[in-house]
C-alpha cells in the first residue's frame, strides 16, 4: 500500500556510468511537503540520486538507470515519459546560481512561456510577481525587472533561480548544494525560504553541511559508496543514528 504521504519512491534504483556503478539498490521514500536532506561524502551518489528524479541523467550517454522511480505512484523511469513535462513538475536548483543571460523578468517568465502557462502579458506579470514573492526576492528587484539576472548578488541570483524553478508550479524542488557558494546571510535567506516553501512543495536537498541538514530538513538520508546507508528523521540521525557508519561520518571520524 502506498503511504499517501510519500511523494517520491525509489525501489532498487541502480545507476551505472559505463562500468562504474554510482547507485546500488537504493530504496528511499521522500515524504510530501517536507525537506529531505541527502548527505554523504563526495562521490557517494547523492547528486546522482536527485538527478534520477527529474531524469537529468538521460543526457549522459553512458548512463544507465534501472529500478523504479515513482512520483505519486506513477513510474517515471520509462522511455514513454515526456521528460519536459516531468521537469515542469520537478524544479531544480544547482550549486552555482545559473541565471539565464536575460533580464530578471525573462528568467522567471521563461518556463511559463515554453510551457504555455500564461495566455497574456497580464497573466505573465502575475506569475513573475508571485514567483519572485515566493522566492522572497520581489521587494529587492521589483523596480529593476529589466536588468540582467546576472547583475544580482550571488544570493539574489540563487533566489532568482528558485523563483524560476517555482514559476512553472512544480510539485518537487531538487536542490543540489544550493548554498555552498553563498555567504552566511544569503544562506540564511535561502534556509528561511525553504521553511516557507516546504508548506507547498516537496524539497530534496543535497548538502555537505551537517548543520544545514539539521536546520532545514525533517528527514535525512546518508549515502556512502552508492548505497543508502540509513534514512530516518533528521533528529534521530543527528542525535542517535542507528548505523555506526552514519555516526562516524556525521561526527567527522571518516570522510
Amino acid at each position: 500500500m502506498i503511504n499517501n504521504k510519500v511523494k517520491i519512491k525509489t525501489t532498487n534504483l541502480n545507476v551505472y556510468y559505463g562500468d562504474k556503478q554510482a547507485l546500488n539498490d537504493v530504496n528511499l521514500e521522500i515524504h510530501s511537503k517536507e525537506v529531505t536532506a541527502l548527505i554523504g561524502p563526495s562521490g557517494c551518489g547523492k547528486s546522482t540520486y536527485i538527478r534520477c528524479i527529474n531524469r537529468m541523467n538521460d543526457v549522459i550517454d553512458i548512463c544507465r538507470v534501472t529500478g523504479s522511480i515513482e512520483i505519486d505512484g506513477n513510474e517515471i523511469n520509462k522511455k514513454e515519459i515526456d521528460v519536459v513535462s516531468l521537469r515542469e513538475k520537478i524544479g531544480m536548483v544547482f550549486q552555482k546560481p545559473n541565471p539565464f543571460p536575460k533580464s530578471i523578468y525573462d528568467n522567471v517568465s521563461y518556463g511559463p512561456n515554453i510551457h504555455g502557462l500564461a495566455e497574456n502579458k497580464v497573466k505573465m506579470d502575475e506569475i513573475v510577481e508571485t514567483s519572485l514573492k515566493k522566492a522572497a526576492l520581489w521587494n529587492e528587484v521589483k523596480d529593476r525587472l529589466n536588468e540582467p539576472g546576472t547583475s544580482l548578488s550571488g544570493g539574489q541570483q540563487q533566489r532568482l533561480c528558485i523563483a524560476r524553478a517555482i514559476s512553472v508550479n512544480p510539485e518537487v524542488i531538487l536542490m543540489d548544494e544550493p548554498c555552498s557558494a553563498l555567504d552566511p546571510i544569503a544562506t540564511a535567506k535561502i534556509e528561511e525560504l525553504m521553511d516557507e516553501l516546504k508548506k507547498s512543495y516537496t524539497i530534496v536537498i543535497v548538502t555537505h553541511s551537517m548543520s544545514q541538514a539539521v536546520r532545514v530538513s525533517q528527514r535525512t538520508g546518508f549515502f556512502h559508496l552508492g548505497k543508502l546507508i540509513e534514512v530516518d528523521t533528521t533528529e534521530k540521525i543527528f542525535k542517535n543514528p542507528n548505523n555506526k557508519m552514519t555516526q562516524d561520518y556525521i561526527t567527522g571520524r571518516f570522510g
Partner: peptide, 10 residues
C-alpha cells in the same frame, strides 16, 4: 567550534 553531532553531542 565543532557543532558536535550524535555521540559527540550526547
Amino acid at each position: 567550534k565543532r557543532a558536535p553531532m550524535a555521540i559527540d553531542l550526547r
